[in-house]
């Protein structure tokens, strides 16, 4: 099968959806001639024009705030944020407007909008350009929050997000932008709200996405002689497909949850607690969690590498449940 990197996969998804549905349009800072921060919108303005690929003034409040209204008005906006951290500058729009308006209207308002943003650390971008935000955005009832791990995921999940009738926040990891993977030539979509078992194993379930998914694969390879590791990629953090994780734990009896968000009140603890509640008697050991140890992401490469869970830290966590 052909290989694309994540940037190419995202661009292809945007291109196909702009082509397929004339109510879809893209807006954000520098998405036009500049072609997007990572090149993910390159060439689209030439093909679809400045109406449907529109550069915006520099305000995330306006970018995602206007997209909410446009979606209620019958369009399918894709609003791009240059970095996922900037969701916080539009925190009011995410938390109080986008997530709540359809609900408090009793379902009468429909907001089929997508926000696309690169998240995660690893490019030495400092504390305000390196965060993973799917924990705090996933905490808002009314938002669908999706994290892409492979180019295959990025394309299929983004296309589904655009077609979905809810507000969907799609996060691609900026350190994986150049990462290549198999992407079919034929158009496809991936289901939202469903996890996938990426690697089958017998002894322990590791839940991981994005960059730490790839590190979990490395950890599994390292331990392969002694431990058979099953890896579940949630794909959608909110709403979470607990059943696929539970089914895996029923088989393995052990759980390690790895995620690039801070541990405090985080995704790792939520997933572990859901499994502890629902599958307590399937567990042979207490679940373990791995994440950022409650610090902002520092700039210096040495410091950044310190706080982002390494492969060896994941190996240690897996070993600790035996």
């Amino acid at each position: 099968m052909r290989e694309l990197n994540q940037v190419q996969a995202i661009r292809e998804a945007l291109d196909e959806e702009l082509e397929r549905d004339e109510t879809v349009y893209l807006s954000g800072e520098d998405v036009g001639t500049f072609g997007g921060n990572f090149g993910e919108t390159q060439g689209l303005v030439d093909k679809y024009g400045t109406e449907r690929v529109r550069d915006t003034p520099l305000s995330e409040i306006g970018i995602v705030g206007h997209a909410l209204g446009a979606s209620i008005g019958g369009l399918r906006p894709v609003a791009e944020l240059q970095f996922a951290d900037f969701a916080a500058t539009a925190g009011e729009e995410f938390i109080n407007q986008i997530a709540k308006m359809p609900y408090i209207s009793g379902g009468r308002l429909k907001a089929p909008m997508t926000v696309l943003a690169p998240s995660g650390a690893g490019i030495r971008a400092g504390a305000q350009h390196s965060q993973s935000v799917h924990a705090w955005t996933g905490h808002q009832p009314g938002l669908v929050v999706v994290a892409a791990t492979t180019p295959y995921d990025a394309k299929g999940l983004l296309k589904s997000a655009i077609r979905d009738d809810n507000p969907v926040f799609v996060l691609a990891h900026k350190k994986l932008m150049g990462f290549k993977g198999e992407v079919p030539e034929e158009p496809y979509t991936l289901p939202l709200g469903e996890a996938v078992v990426e690697r089958e194993g017998e002894d322990v379930t590791v839940v991981a996405t994005q960059r730490l998914y790839h590190r979990s694969v490395e950890a599994a390879e390292e331990l392969a002689e002694d431990v058979s590791v099953e890896i579940v990629n949630p794909r959608t953090f909110s709403p979470l497909d607990v059943e696929t994780i539970a089914e895996s734990v029923r088989k393995t009896g052990r759980l390690v949850v790895v995620d690039e968000t801070p541990l405090r009140y985080g995704t790792q603890g939520y997933i572990a607690s859901r499994i502890a509640d629902e599958e307590f008697f399937s567990l042979d050991a207490p679940p373990r969690t791995v994440g950022v140890e409650d610090t902002p992401i520092p700039f210096s490469p040495t410091l950044e590498d310190e706080v982002i869970p390494s492969t060896s830290k994941i190996v240690d966590a897996i070993e600790s449940v035996f």
Binding site: G65, H66, G69, I72, G73, E92, N96, R108, L109
Partner: peptide, 29 residues
């Protein structure tokens, strides 16, 4: 929505950008 009434942002001052988006939808459509 049937009467084209968009609800209130009770966090005062947050309804104007959605209104701009609604207007963009009228313009583009």
């Amino acid at each position: 929505v049937d009467r084209h009434l968009y609800g209130h942002a009770a966090t005062i001052g947050s309804g104007q950008n959605p209104a701009a988006g609604l207007a963009l939808a009228q313009q583009m459509r």
